[in-house]
């Protein structure tokens, strides 16, 4: 199998990349890790006439961190988030999520930003970015802009990105308190897209109260979903079984899954409830254990 013929462009600066997108518009596609785009092109589901490879644009694999946030360049591959121990303590959800994506070989090549721009509603990173209250930098002919995760996903495979724009970086706010995270995923086989996935992150302050909770959902709507009603229920509260169950029910009610070969809508909705409950309970027990140890 091989793709339709196309023109290959390998710009060596971001300006050059944007100029190519301006010139070719909808005919052009950006190539980063290629782990979704190339399979689609081989199946002829996608047939761009121009490919703009970001692989030789310097600086796009950069990682910077200040006291407000972590910024990951567009060429940051899944595997680097899975294996970089330096990030685990402050940004545990990155590792929790990365380890669930496809398989180790695909993770060596695919990128987080590429997955976000591709915007498959069943993808893991979309749910994680929402749970992290993250944002992305988008560069285009009119300069650079920030788009928050809650605003970024528009519809199936559709984001706020214009055809002449490049997603150049992903930003994640630095936690201010102890941070707990988990990513739960139901898949038919190793490496598959999620039937349902739930990405959870909460911070817990010195009084044991939840701060900045995030609950991202995959596979249960036309886009990655943020269960904001469920999350705001948690804000400022100590974790308790009753609260967890209430939040899980609220998260489940926020979904809009379709019945398909992977399961009925009812089943998926219930899996969201189960995963939110299971995830928050595991966070609760880790928090309690940490407390006992430090007491």
């Amino acid at each position: 199998m091989f793709p339709n013929a196309f023109e290959y462009q390998s710009p060596t600066s971001l300006d050059e990349a944007v100029a190519l997108l301006v010139e070719h518009g909808y005919e052009a596609k950006i190539l980063a890790g290629g782990q979704s785009l190339l399979p689609m092109m081989k199946l002829r589901v996608a047939a761009p006439t121009v490919l703009v490879d970001l692989g030789r644009v310097p600086g796009l694999d950069a990682r910077t961190e200040n006291d407000r946030e972590l910024s990951l360049g567009a060429m940051t591959r899944h595997a680097s988030l899975e294996w970089d121990e330096d990030l685990w303590a402050r940004y545990p959800l990155l590792r929790e999520t990365a380890a669930w994506i496809a398989d180790p070989l695909v993770r060596n090549r695919g990128t987080m930003a590429g997955s976000l721009a591709h915007a498959d509603p069943a993808a893991d990173w979309g749910a994680a970015l929402l749970a992290l209250h993250g944002s992305v930098t988008v560069d285009g002919p009119n300069g650079s802009r920030r788009v928050g995760a809650d605003d970024f996903f528009v519809d199936v495979f559709t984001t706020r990105l214009e055809p002449d724009e490049v997603l150049t970086a992903v930003h994640i706010p630095r936690p201010e308190h102890d941070v707990f995270a988990t990513h739960l995923k139901l898949e038919r086989k190793v490496g598959d897209f999620a039937v349902v996935a739930v990405s959870l992150q909460v911070e817990i302050d010195g009084d044991g109260r939840i701060r900045r909770p995030g609950i991202g959902l995959a596979g249960v709507g036309p886009t990655s979903l943020h269960a904001t009603a469920a999350a705001s229920l948690l804000e400022g509260q100590p974790l308790s079984l009753e609260l967890i169950r209430e939040a899980a029910a609220k998260a489940s009610a926020a979904t809009d899954p379709a019945s398909d070969r992977r399961g009925s809508a009812d089943f998926k909705r219930d899996m969201v409830r189960l995963f939110v409950e299971r995830g928050l309970r595991s966070i609760e027990s880790r928090f309690d254990e940490g407390r006992r140890r430090s007491a």
């Binding site: 290959y8 782990q35 399979p39 490879d53 692989g55 595997a79 070989l105």
Partner: peptide, 21 residues
């Protein structure tokens, strides 16, 4: 994964990488 090769020391699926890359 039958097509796995090492690219700069990292194993990748060579059916999902373009030669020009």
């Amino acid at each position: 994964g039958a097509c796995t090769v090492l690219l700069d020391g990292v194993p990748v699926k060579s059916c999902t990488v373009l030669a020009v890359q």
